[in-house]
Amino acid sequence: MDILISGLLLGGTYVLIAMGLNLQYGVARIMNLANGEMIVLGALASFWVFTSAAISPILTIFLVFPIAFVGNWLIYRFLLLPLVRRAKTQGHLEVDAILATFGMSFILIGIVVSLNGGYFTYSFLATPFELLGSTVALNRLVAFIFAVIIAVVLFLWLNRSRAGMAVRAVSVNPGSARLVGINVEKVSALAFAIGGAVSAVAGVLISTFITLDASVGVIFTMKALIIVIMGGVGDVRGAIIAALILGLVETTVATLVDPGLTLAAAYFIFLLVLLFRPQGLFGKPQT
């Protein structure tokens, strides 16, 4: 029961990470390997604001979201869009995007290291809390609740608003979206920026209960990628379930076997997905 609850709480945060990457890869078609660094930056911001001004991470969210939105929009507009425009094929763009985002990821790591080479440790709501008979740290629960709220808002925005509909249209087929008068470049930039902002907010929430440092970004990138692929690219429902599965499996392995093996567990799931359901949990088999 302890495992189930902390697994689900962890999965809740993964949902947020995966939604960020899903927007970037599913809509803007950019496999953003610097996604994890965006999480780290969010965590660093939260750490700074908390330790220097004692402002609650919950409030930091409202600061981080717009900054990360603008930052990611600029990255897309000035670094990635030229690649999209020059790419002859999807495969070509994929390779370019992978290399460019690797570059960005290293640059961001370099910047974070020069700002703060140590661990981002601070204590926020680290009080035990009784939930369905298990004891969990209150910060995990709060992070989970905020992850759910953000996910719901994002989901509603995607499914109810006009802009959200354009985003979904581009995700399904950029060519047809262009035909019905959607500005694909603009929508892609929007999706990329929101995706990055959501990832940064996820970083803020995660930093309340996990200690991060400059180098862990790649681990989060890996996990986000595994979730997105397991859930099926562009499939929000699939990503949520995949995130919860990953959270549960990792918590189980960490509790029952060894915390050092969580990445191995994530890999094992990834391998199963690649072998048996490369199109995602709910995807239809492609030919």
């Binding site: 670094l79 290399l99 460019a100 690797f102 570059g103 960005m104 990821s105 290293f106 640059i107 961001l108 790591i109 370099g110 910047i111 290291v113 020069s114």
Partner: peptide
């Protein structure tokens, strides 16, 4: 500066 340099080299 090594990590930063690696990133710049990629770009």
């Amino acid at each position: 500066f090594t990590t930063l340099f690696l990133g710049l080299a990629f770009l």
